[in-house]
Computed example of a mutant assay.
Amino acid sequence: MADDMDDRKRALRAELRERRRIRTATERSADAAGITQNLIDLTSDLKVGYLAAYLSTPDEPPTREFLRWTAERGIRVLLPVSREDGLLDWAPYDGDDEEADLLGMPTPTSELLGPIAINGVDLILVPAACVDHSGMRMGWGMGYFDKTLGSMEACPPVYAVIFDDELVDSVPRERHDMPVNGVVTPSGIVSF
């Protein structure tokens, strides 16, 4: 049964990676504008002063314009840094240089904080491969965010940032998978 679940997740992730890879420049530009505005709206509506987010890679729904907006307004942001033990450290977003972490993901070069630094945030924005209509999130298979969310005593709202076609009817689910409270897409915000 576990092998079947792994195979289903692997196939779905491969399909989603390919869809992201072949997005046109026109689609990417329109998606960037929509996602940025919807992230601003969500942050404003929730009156967020401190959040955890991530630096998007070229194929992910873009977060960088939104992060620049947060810096301009003095909203404090923590960004994840992958650790070898499967946990996430956190670093304050300062809008300056970035480097790749051990998984090759972009991370800031600012002061490195431990895993519990996230405990004071008002909102958590997470990457996802897809999310279903019940709020079940499927990540990219490393489990970093599932471990982080599962270990928090008082978890604030968690929203995944995805493309419109990545809000799906159902995703393969395992015991350790953590749901989200909503999604931000180019066309809107959906809360579960």
Rank of each mutant, 00 (worst) to 15 (best):
D6I: 13
R8N: 06
K9M: 07
A11H: 14
R19F: 07
R21N: 10
I22K: 13
T24S: 15
A25S: 13
S29L: 10
S29W: 01
D31I: 09
A32Q: 12
G34L: 00
Q37D: 14
Q37Y: 07
L42K: 06
T43D: 11
K47T: 10
G49K: 11
G49Q: 10
Y50E: 10
P58E: 01
P62E: 03
L67D: 07
W69G: 02
I75H: 07
V77S: 00
L79T: 10
L79M: 10
P80N: 00
E84Q: 14
P92H: 10
D97N: 13
E99W: 09
G104N: 13
T109H: 12
E111R: 15
G114N: 01
G114P: 08
I116P: 00
A117I: 06
L123A: 05
I124D: 00
V126I: 11
A128W: 02
D132A: 00
H133L: 01
M138I: 00
G141A: 05
G141Q: 04
M142A: 15
M142R: 15
Y144H: 12
Y144L: 00
F145W: 12
F145V: 06
K147W: 11
L149S: 08
A154H: 14
P156K: 04
V158C: 08
Y159N: 07
A160D: 03
V161P: 02
I162C: 04
I162R: 06
E166D: 08
L167I: 09
V168I: 15
D169Q: 13
D169K: 13
P172Q: 08
R173D: 06
R173H: 12
D177Q: 10
G182D: 01
V184L: 02
P186K: 08
S187F: 04
G188F: 10
I189P: 05
F192W: 09
